[in-house]
Amino acid sequence: MKFQEELKDSIRKALPDLDVVLGWCGSFDPLHATPHFIRREEDIDKLEISPLSVHNLATYLPGLRGKKVGIVVKGCDSRSVVELLQENLINREDITIFGFPCTGVVDQAKIKKALGHAGNVRTCDISDSAIVIQTEDKAHSLTLTQMLADKCRTCRYPDAIISDYFVGDKIGEPAPLETDYAALEAFESLSVPERFGYWLKELDRCIRCYACRSACPLCVCRDHCAAESRDPHWLSQENNVRDKVMFQVIHAYHMAGRCTECGECQRACPVDIPVLMLKQKMNREIRDIFQYEAGVDPEATPPLLSFNMEEENITEKEW
């Protein structure tokens, strides 16, 4: 990436005052990146920004509260940072934010599907329009836009909303490839038994690893999650789909009006359950009732985290 060196210079400048800077670097094969914790000057060179920088590093921030932390953010990641600030879960003065113009990240599930069982990846070259992947037996050329994560196809915030250092030229307001919630609306046109049947089928393969929760930047209860708590005892340990559905419903409710739709829950799912749709559903309701979007204004109070005697768009007296 053209601004990568500029970014490294910024980090170099800020690092002496920071305990750690969160970024991405290469991983076990050329097709994957991994979160990178920069603590020393020499760690900076390993930093790599590319469409493989999928992880939302804001997930680490609440756990690092109290430390001076730098964080490299995509536009969507910055919304998580804003939401954490809104909820008083991190301190603004402890965080140094490095932003860059993001042109989208890949969806590894889509690549895996396109490649099939291809074995080890030898090289991976990403240009503006294509990804060329050399596996052991042949070269695969994939169109980049088709491999982009769904959230990138509807992205409205490619530049970090909040930053202390911004490298590269801002993209501004992009034209999204798809409209918001189109997939959700298509799903909603199904009948109730069809939709319930869909979720029973999808969630039946859940292995209750709770990776969705662990990857979520706004799941901040950590050791006190309702999933494992015995007092209050929300979920049993029984192996049934009911408790799996129950957990996802709890998660969606806890995210209502807070979720920035970064998609980490769905990306982290090892069995590819489309759990993001549940949160999108809640978010669309919140948008329609409160005209509110999570994580875009550090000063705003999320609608479900305040109390009003009368809500403008909820007329209880007419119920």
């Binding site: 901040v220 006190h224 999650c225 708590s229 007092d231 209050p232 005892h233 929300w234």
Partner: peptide, 17 residues
């Protein structure tokens, strides 16, 4: 409270559940 740290006495989550 997402993690159920606040409980209303006589109407706790466990009682309602």
């Amino acid at each position: 409270c997402p993690q159920g740290a606040v409980q209303l006495q006589h109407f706790t989550d466990n009682q309602i559940l």
